[in-house]
Design a protein around this nucleic acid. Structure first.
Lengths: 407, 407
DNA sequence: AACACTTTTTAAAAATTTTTATTAAGTTTT
DNA sequence: AAAACTTAATAAAAATTTTTAAAAAGTGTT
């Protein structure tokens, strides 16, 4: 698969026609990667080249074992077309999801199946360079163990928290270095293209490629955990802003003279509409002697985290339900703003707090009815994510394919 | 210029190669239209076709009088290239800017010069179908008077207030008709392609094509008049949202338990950060006996409109300056939210209220320092528009070219 | 001012792509 | 179940584009 990963240096020596052919090859592989098995006719139409041209490249890819015949397609009266699909093992992508407390690592094939052990390693994220090597060592051993051909590994996708400029490969919050960027340091270790992206954006990409946002044009993805993360698909692309920092929804000023946020500013959305706010409300309520199973849980030594409150609500705890409603209403206010600004067709809610499902959705809808223009509000559907906890690492993998197949 | 305006029907009869050639022709015209005179080599590189191919099409366009040689370009040691530019009069675009009180109409050539009388007609915008015919009659007479060849008129661009779906050509606020859309009705009259767009978006497009946003990738354009209009350039394109309603910045909920807005909701940004808010604050102040030249002006029978207050401020009236500062600070809060969500490289302020220049900018900057993350805030420049009152009609014209030259 | 070096333009040759035609393989209708 | 109709794949012919080469037109330096 060298035609996929080492273009920039070698491409310069190619003539114009060779470049074009090379491009067409990549576009076919890309098309099959993202859309599954297709017929020559379909590829020809989509890629705007004649069938003989496509046919000759297909034969080439066939002999290179990049693609295989995968049965026949349907016909509405006429010969049935051969379907060509990517081989499962033409290339692999290494995904790394660095969280605050855990780092996940796995290798995926072209069908997005994990073909290795799935590492789930406790690792406290801190700004210490030794972490980079620790993660590399884990990944490296994983590759060895998996027994896959290293030449078939085409790239590494990493997602993590922080203010990240994906284009430059810099994380301004962790491991900051303007020259020897984080991406570069990993590239030096892996000797492979490495792409770094902020976790919210990774999840958003995952929703777009494999989740509810598939096929949509303008979608917002909210992740409600301790804070509120926002990622945006705009015009069928992940929108990063001019320096990669777009989507700082958690810290927009929405409350007048509000509480001090951990970011140092006052009245951020996060102070009233997040897991943080939920825990604060719970503590305040219990302090005031509100009747709730939460008090018992705390006495049993359980920590008060958003998850605990969500579980209490799902077990019917009225107090928990009421504070979720409060948080939901405030979040709804924020979403109302988003709807008016972006006019998205879909808003996806994910994260721990979103597991409260209807307890969260109902107050959000209420707030939307209050705070947004009906004509606009009706254009946006709101759904709860179905991607689960592996959304991040899938997004990291998606990033690699997006970048490898770039135009 | 029929190859520019009547494609869809006739294109179907063309073979694939003819289509491709046709497309290349259009792309060359488009390139020259948007970027001015260029050499064959530049066109070849930009459009990724070989020089002989481009050369043959250039000769064809030359003999059709679509383009002309326009002197020679510079060389860094070598023969100097011939520059080819579009003829001034290959085609014309009719622009119509429908405001609440005035409608402007003019015809523009490829150099964006007005080649007709510039109609500035008092016309109260109301939901009355007779208006459509009135506007058509005015435009029609203008075309006659101008003496230009009707065959060279390639389209009509209209901008106006309201909730507009530009793709469908429907204005949901005025002249609403799902079937017989507004665009269609004008098309039936003009017998030309007609494009309708919301005024904020038209201004934004004008800034992008001919104003401060030229060459930027992600820019927000705010228009502060009675309300606050927002238009967005995202990834070098006008962003309209999934149904064309994006950018309703004026009515995002930013004030808790705030005033009732004219839109029916409570606490909209518009109630505290707009010309409307400015006038309200002025009235309240004068009522409370605040010392100001504004009281005198009112006694003289002048109407209290934003313009009056801005003028007072620019003449040094301290009260006017103070209320502009108040409005500016609130607007700044809203802009802080925009910066965090969009991370734009540029924000352009236009409209009557923006004419207060530094009196408005300073409090905005203050609010930004308060309410946005420094790392993000520093990525966005804020500038006052230089386009003046014709921004709208220029944007309407730009829309036509954008659409005519679509991919 | 002549020579060496660049870059554009034109022309002819080479290569590639598209078109057209033909054969193969299925579907649907009678 | 056969005939008529569709659609796919393949092959040869036609057309177009790109490449290569050479001439034309400048620029800059010795």
């Amino acid at each position: 698969m060298n035609f996929l990963i080492e273009p920039k240096n070698r491409l310069k020596t190619l003539s114009n026609v060779e470049k074009k052919k090379h491009l067409l090859k990549r576009r076919i592989v890309r098309y099959l990667y993202f859309h599954g098995p297709k017929s020559a006719a379909e590829i020809s139409k989509k890629l705007k080249s004649s069938i003989p041209t496509i046919s000759s490249i297909i034969n080439e890819l066939l002999s290179l074992d990049v693609i295989i015949e995968q049965g026949q397609g349907n016909s509405s009266g006429g010969r049935r077309p051969n379907l060509y699909g990517l081989q499962d093992d033409v290339f692999y992508i290494l995904g790394i999801d660095i969280g605050w407390f855990t780092t996940k690592i796995a290798i995926f094939n072209t069908k997005l199946e994990s073909v290795s052990e799935f590492i789930n390693h406790p690792l406290l994220l801190k700004d210490d360079n030794r972490l980079i090597h620790e993660i590399y060592d884990l990944a490296n051993k994983l590759i060895d163990k998996s027994g896959i051909d290293r030449n078939k590994l085409i790239g590494v996708g990493i997602d993590m928290p922080g203010l990240i400029d994906a284009e430059k490969g810099i994380n301004y919050t962790y491991f900051y270095d303007e020259e020897n960027t984080l991406a570069k340091r990993f590239e030096d270790l892996f000797e492979l293209p490495v792409f770094i992206e902020n976790d919210a954006n990774a999840r958003t990409l995952a929703e777009y490629r494999y989740g509810l946002a598939k096929g949509t044009k303008n979608t917002l993805v909210l992740h409600v955990g301790w804070g509120v993360g926002l990622g945006m698909i705009i015009n069928k692309e992940l929108y990063r802003g001019s320096s990669g920092f777009a989507g700082e929804f958690s810290h927009i000023p929405l409350v007048e003279n509000g509480l001090l946020c951990k970011c140092g500013k006052q009245g951020c959305l996060e102070t009233v509409a997040s897991g943080t706010a939920l825990v604060r409300l719970a503590k305040e309520g219990i302090h005031q002697g509100k009747h709730s199973t939460l008090s018992e849980k705390i006495e049993k030594g359980q920590e008060l985290i958003p998850k605990t409150i969500i579980e209490a609500a799902n077990e019917g705890d009225q107090f928990a339900i009421s504070i979720i409603a409060k948080v939901g209403f405030e979040l709804g206010k924020g979403i109302a703003a988003l709807i008016q600004l972006f006019n998205p067709e879909l808003i996806i809610l994910g994260g721990r707090v979103a597991e409260a499902n209807q307890y969260l959705l109902t107050p959000i809808e209420q707030a939307l009815n209050h705070y947004s223009i009906p004509k606009l509000r009706n254009q946006s559907k709101i759904k709860i994510s179905k991607l689960g906890t592996n959304a991040n690492i899938l997004g990291a993998v998606a990033m690699v394919s997006e970048n490898i197949f770039e135009k």
